[in-house]
Amino acid sequence: MGLDFTVLPEFLDTLLLGSLWTIGITLSAAILSFFGGILFAVIALYAPAVVRYPFRLFAWLFMGTPLLLQLFLIYFGLIQIGVDLPAFVAGVIGLGLHFAVYNSDIIQAGILAVDKGQFEGARTLGLSNWQSIRKIIVPQAVRAVVPPIGNNMIALLKDSALVSVIGVTELTLSAQLAISKTFRPFEFYLAAAACYYVINLLLEAGLRRIERRIQAAR
């Protein structure tokens, strides 16, 4: 049995819908991971010890265990303690927190790299410690680390395929559904790969635009 791509058009809407879910889950998780990353970085660097140490354990859990396990834990595990999340929400939280921890590492390095004179300049004007961190240090740190965070977001897009295992019909699961009806794995996985490729291009174009926009402000 050779390859037969004529089976694809019939399932085009399935693949398109799957792509939309992939885009939706990626963008939602990316936003969560970005703001979560900032929050985690500020906690890791500035919070009092009673917050900082438990947070380290949490960060270690998210960095030291497989994302797949984290998704299972959030989707299937939390039900046992009465938290029954829709699969999409569980997927966004899992992906978002996982990448927030990675972003946090990058943002922490960015914060530490901001020139000491910036903090002094702010404090000299009368800004408080916290005002200086919020208005001067963090915005500069985030601008400086947009490229590595962008790389994380591309990794996030690819890892979003993992949420198929908790039943979100994103691109990968959509392809699998089509395969289960047609028994044409090669064609549909290739088609899904092409879709990922296009989404990836869009994401990269978006990231480049953001980078260009902050160019002067650095």
Partner: peptide
């Protein structure tokens, strides 16, 4: 923070906020 509002300071390396 109150007192510093009344004391202006200018640094050798400007310390302007680049963002």
């Amino acid at each position: 923070n109150q007192v510093r509002q009344e004391i202006g300071m200018v640094f050798q390396h400007f310390n302007l906020f680049p963002h």
